[in-house]
Design a binder for these strands. Structure first.
Length: 221
DNA sequence: CAGACGATTGCCT
DNA sequence: GGCAATCGTCTGT
């Protein structure tokens, strides 16, 4: 799995197994501790089906947002219309709009009533890469492939994910789902503080709840 | 109802 | 490195 000088990449056709292998998570998986789920989601497939075509990528970066005591978490100031799905059942999508132009995709963790989620920050593209380029409106422009999905708003744009998916069941969803994929060893995983949360208390700013694949070129800067 | 701001990105110097 | 874009959401009057 490790390529000298090029970091860790996933090889889905070999790591994932053949026909008949597990292709869905359980709700119980997502109901676990959020940090555990975030770590375990590295290597999972994010799959979006558009007009019958599968667009997918392997999760290589994500962040945990852990309940009402986490001042970086949208649920820290209680339930609102925007964040209500965080209080709902695990395995569902929390999609919200920010900066006047960007959509962010999270998957809900922990039991119903316990508001927590994992923000998906970067994927390594696998299927439908040309379609992702079109959705990112990069046709005709010279761009590095790693710019396609290396960032939380970039990946939602590349996969045509918006607020219509807020609350979607990502365990069984037909058009947006998570699927088990490759599993990375701990030696391939790094973690550190989360990005873009300067508004949070110091303890939460410093909490090492961002997880990523070491040296993977698709991880956001 | 006005004002501040954001779990970001892309373009500019 | 700096900073504009752009608007839904939240807060306080």
């Amino acid at each position: 799995m490790h390529i000298e000088g090029r970091g860790y990449l996933a090889y889905p056709d070999t790591d994932r197994g053949g026909i008949g292998k597990l292709t869905r998570f359980s709700y119980e998986f997502f109901s676990s501790d959020t940090l555990t789920v975030a770590r375990a989601l590295l290597g999972a497939y994010l799959v979006r089906t558009v007009d019958g075509q599968r667009l997918s990528g392997i999760i290589v970066e994500c962040e945990a947002y852990v309940g009402q005591d986490d001042t970086a978490c949208h649920a820290s100031r209680g339930r609102t219309q925007r964040n209500q799905v965080m209080f709902g059942p695990p395995g569902h999508a929390y999609v919200y709009f920010t900066y006047g132009m960007h959509w962010m995709l999270n998957v809900i963790t922990e039991m119903e009533g316990s508001p927590a989620a994992v923000l998906l920050r970067a994927i390594q593209p696998q299927e439908g890469i040309q379609r992702m380029r079109e959705l990112r409106q990069l046709r005709g422009k010279v761009r590095k492939e790693q710019d396609l999905t290396s960032g939380p708003a970039r990946l939602t744009q590349a996969l045509a994910i918006d607020g219509a998916f807020n609350g979607t069941d990502m365990v069984t969803g037909e058009t947006l789902r998570l699927e088990p994929g490759t599993s990375f060893p701990d030696s391939a995983v790094q973690n550190g503080p989360r990005v873009g949360i300067n508004y949070a208390d110091e303890k939460d700013r410093l909490a090492p709840w961002r997880f990523w694949i070491k040296d993977n070129p698709y991880v956001s800067g």
